[in-house]
Amino acid sequence: MTSRRLDQILLAAGVLVLWQLLHWAVGPDVVSSPWATVARAIELMRTVAFWGHAAATASAFGLASVIAIAAGIGLGLWLGLHRFAGDVADPILGTVYSIPKITLYPLILLVFGLGISAKIAFGVIHGIFPIAIFTMNAVRNVAPVYRRTARVMRLSSVATAATILAPAALPEIVTGVRVGVALTLLGTLIGELFAATSGLGFALIRAMDVHAVTDILAITMLIFIFAASVNAALGLVERRARHGG
């Protein structure tokens, strides 16, 4: 654990050094220095406008995540428990998952218009498929010996699902949620970049329009920290589910 922590610190230090070198190489008009960026990020965090954008992104991302997780797990469970439906849906889900969703953006805009619902929809279509695929496979891959054990213990099918199949499938489902939530954030931010009137993605695009390099990097860094924190939190949940404690 300590050596892993050391690795993380070394990695962070390495990134900072590279960043500084890049800043010296290309100049402040292209890449601001790490220190200037951190200072600007702290400054931004003291403004009301920043928190308005952050709140807009957070609420869109939060809602999109809830919808993607609920619908993705629901769909995945159903497909996992119904062999035939799963066999039919498996290649379809795989194909839809691999489509670049950005091509659907004009359609989403036409349907949902500018605003939070388009962002949410765009987040959901990024997140729902990986979650559904992981969940379906999680249920399908539960070791057959668990089902046999349940039958020898004379459990009802409801008790089997609740006390054996669900916990056995949980680690894989959490992995799917982790991947899905990361993609939901991506989808939400892309939605904000292209057509929105608020949110961190919108703030980023506006900073690009006025060529405020330090702002661009400061906002990017804050988004990165947020995404990394969400991922780390879900990683913790995943480890707990996998090792049972």
């Binding site: 668990y146 046999r148 054990t149 020898v152």
Partner: peptide
Amino acid sequence: DGIGAVFQQDASFFWLN
């Protein structure tokens, strides 16, 4: 009731101690 079985594959529940 009254029949117990142990299989070749590991059937211990990994989520329980």
